[in-house]
Amino acid sequence: MGFPSPAADYAVQTFTIASLHGYDGNCRTIETSAGYAIINVARKPEVGDTILISFCGSLDFAKVQGKALITQDGEAIEGDALDDATVMGVITHLLNRVTDTDDRPVI
């Protein structure tokens, strides 16, 4: 019941994905070839957002541009083709792998 310890002000905080990126119950982590993508399934996509879509049986990233989706390879999904695309969530963060098969140094 006493008073709070002044040492608590100097305690080291443990950093987690949840504390750094606002990871909550609406977020999912998807493994990609470059690392991990954190998506928010509750957030409504807006123009300029990058989203994860399911299109033609595969997952892909796309950018929302007006009434079209622009995929990573530059293809536009618009009009009736949008009926075949399912938005999985809005990308909030991308976590790249530190280790890679290349001989590039990592600092």
Rank of each mutant, 00 (worst) to 15 (best):
G22Q: 11
V98M: 11
T86L: 08
T92F: 06
V106K: 11
E75M: 04
I30K: 06
N26I: 03
A85N: 02
I107W: 03
I91D: 01
F15Q: 15
I39K: 06
T92H: 10
L95R: 05
S5Q: 10
C56Y: 06
I77Y: 05
T101N: 02
D84H: 11
P4W: 05
L94H: 06
Q13E: 14
N40H: 10
T50A: 04
F61K: 03
G35T: 04
Y36Q: 10
K44A: 10
P105S: 08
D80P: 06
K44E: 14
F15V: 15
V64L: 11
T32C: 04
G2M: 13
A18R: 08
I30Q: 08
R28F: 14
G35A: 05
A11R: 13
A68R: 14
C56V: 06
F3C: 12
I51G: 02
K67D: 14
D100P: 00
D84R: 12
I38S: 04
S5P: 01
D100Y: 00
D60L: 10
F61E: 08
P105W: 02
T29Y: 11
I51K: 01
F55Q: 01
V90A: 05
V87D: 01
L82Y: 04
A37V: 09
G89P: 03
I17W: 04
T32K: 05
P4L: 07
T16M: 06
D9P: 00
R104T: 09
D24K: 10
L69V: 05
R97N: 12
L59F: 12
F55A: 02
G22V: 12
L95Q: 07
A11I: 09
G89E: 04
R28K: 15
D80S: 11
I53H: 01
Q13R: 12
G2P: 14
D49E: 09
A7W: 12
Q65F: 08
L94M: 13
A42M: 13
V87L: 03
D73W: 02
G48I: 08
G2W: 13
P6W: 08
K63L: 11
P4Q: 04
T71D: 02
S19M: 01
I51Y: 03
G48T: 08
V90T: 09
G35Q: 09
F3T: 15
V41L: 10
D60T: 04
G22C: 11
E78P: 00
V98D: 12
I39V: 14
E46S: 13
P6M: 12
Q13F: 00
D84I: 07
M1A: 13
I91Y: 02
L52I: 08
G2R: 15
D80M: 05
G25I: 07
A18I: 00
R97W: 05
D60A: 13
N96P: 00
A68Y: 01
Y23D: 09
P6D: 10
N26S: 15
G66E: 06
R43A: 15
D80G: 06
D103G: 09
G2C: 10
E75F: 06
D60S: 13
V47A: 11
T29R: 14
T92L: 09
T32S: 14
